[in-house]
Design a protein around this nucleic acid. Structure first.
Lengths: 334, 334
DNA sequence: TCTGCCCATGTAAGTGCGTACATGCGCCCC
DNA sequence: GGGGCGCATGTACGCACTTACATGGGCAGA
């Protein structure tokens, strides 16, 4: 396989010149440059980025940890991160943790091994030791999907608590008092935790009893949302409105209502969370909370890359969410 | 930052021993090993994988090229590939081409630069020059999502043509003669091309005229499917059945029918393609063709890694698809 | 003509690890 | 008691680049 040395020999120049042709082409006389380039092309030469990164001490790679990518909102932010990174000449290494702290720790180790120039993390809730390892290896990072005010954890995110509160308040403002919750597993997912906390505190503030049978934590799948909803419908006194803390589960919940011949929103109101594209195509269209996944991903990547380049530290940034009113919620019928 | 050398000095051993502790722990006396490990831990030492890969000539990384990840079936196969790779100790580098041949070429170059041990490609239709570059750099690869019988391009996929034919035949067997098609852009997507070809040849075989107004190529988004469907509904003589060559566009198509007060399947039949989780939660549940995204991804990764380890070449493998009958298609009413 | 500077290029010292080979020690067996 | 073997470890080279510094020629200004 051709190396920079081989190209240099054929072109009758030094390896330094070939390296310059690749990295700083304008520092090479155009005649020399063209000769080297045509030789590289003829030999299908691809420079070894590993050796380059080792020598230059930067890999032009950023690491991204997400819990899941199929069927989920994380695909959107991931795509935005990919786009922004590619545009800046960076490659993204994605690690999928499957909501497992153990797996996440191993993935972060692997990414540091690969000498990523920076890390984008999902959620803020992890072992102190991991943060220490990241710091010891001088890897700048940014937390997404979860707002922290801590100086030690620069964050680019929206506020899950406030957003979930908005959703809950919306249902209450429509006169609902029997309100259910379907959300992710709070013990492995600090975003779900915040959303549940908002739901509970919000009911509490309005003097509404928290009914354990109205709360379902489950996996990030449509059918799980569907099952949870079916269970609630089967209750003696079922809720009249349900807050689904993500649109995926909301789609399942709507299907469950349809299964049970309940009309949404006439018989039961459903509000989602995320504003995935699917939210516009459910029947009825889903009222939900729009989350700035795309902008968050883009800004996180841009900020991280700026930090890598030493232009600035990362400033914590809170992005707005927005209640999107469609047709899956209605005033409670007396 | 700590290196293997630093650890060695502190532990009073050579760098070779530290390296062995990392890579072949059983070759080191347990006493020495434990001492070295505790020193590594105390210093948050993470070995430099770039240097390691450079020295060992393998990166334990595989590259994956997909056109898009948000809102799509590719997320499923990607997740499967990630899982299988992580399990085998490999990291996945994902490049998103956005259906652009130019971007794809640049991404493949970048992946080879990163010295991926192997490549997983989506679709088979690309410049000869690219395949030559891959070959010249000794990178094993496998094509997914598109079956080719060529020896030069080992493939692990299902047959898009046959699968799309099954879908079209299904509609015809229900008595439909005015059949529409919504699919991806065939000039940038050989999977869409095959599916359209199957649709057209199938109609032809049954003596059904191909009506240009019944064919819509559009982007991979729900709202695009919705728009396409609306246009067809507005025709003087609209189709009585529509084959959507992916479930995403089918979801949009169903929404468009609902917008127009057309009942699915009573007034119009819709069949999808992919069998995404959403297909079970549409109203009505979507008849579709199940595509083995998960198994394909898993098998592609496993086969590629086996090839990397020199255990075997990659044998082309055709996976089965399956017509999934739900409730979005019905016999044509006379 | 000489000095000094700039441009194009070369020289060579890293970059952090893997690994083939060398070393040295202890033990077994003859 | 010596040869040989195996285990634990060390030595040192190589991996393919980047880059600080050196070199040398040409040219402008003194």
């Amino acid at each position: 396989m051709t190396t920079i040395k081989g190209v240099a020999k054929i072109a009758g120049v030094s390896t330094a010149t070939v390296s310059r042709v690749i990295n700083e082409p304008n520092k090479v006389r155009s005649e020399t440059r063209d000769r080297v380039i045509s030789i590289m092309r003829a030999h299908h030469f691809v420079a070894d980025g590993l050796a380059g990164s080792l020598a230059s001490q930067r890999s032009r790679t950023i690491g991204l940890i997400i819990p899941t990518i199929a069927n989920s909102i994380y695909a959107l932010s991931t795509q935005a991160i990919q786009r922004a990174s590619q545009a800046a000449g960076y490659t993204v290494l994605v690690g999928i943790s499957d909501f497992s702290a153990k797996v996440e720790e191993a993935l972060i180790h692997r990414l540091i091994e690969r000498r990523v120039d920076g890390l984008i993390l999902t959620g803020a809730d992890r072992n102190e030791e991991i943060y220490r390892k990241i710091a010891h290896n001088n890897v700048p990072f940014v937390v997404t999907w979860q707002l922290t005010r801590s100086r030690e954890q620069p964050t680019i995110s929206f506020d899950n608590y406030q957003a979930a509160r908005t959703a809950t308040e919306h249902l209450i403002s429509l006169g609902h008092g029997r309100i259910g919750l379907i959300c992710g597993r709070t013990e492995v997912n600090d975003r779900a935790f915040e959303r549940r906390r908002a739901y509970e505190e919000c009911l509490d503030r309005h003097g509404i009893n928290i009914e354990p049978d109205y709360i379902h934590e489950c996996e990030f799948e449509m059918f799980e949302g569907r099952t949870a909803m079916s269970r609630m419908i089967a209750l003696e006194s079922p809720p009249t409105a349900v807050f689904c803390a993500n649109d995926i589960q909301a789609v399942g919940a709507i299907a469950a209502c349809h299964d049970a011949n309940l009309r949404v929103p006439n018989d039961i109101s459903i509000i989602g969370f995320d504003d995935l594209p699917i939210a516009q195509c459910t029947i009825p269209p889903l009222t939900t909370v729009r989350v700035p996944a795309n902008e968050m991903g883009n800004r996180a990547a841009v900020a991280l890359i700026a930090a890598i380049r030493g232009k600035s530290g990362i400033k914590t940034l809170e992005l707005p969410t927005e209640l999107i009113l469609r047709n899956s919620t209605a005033r409670l019928k007396q």
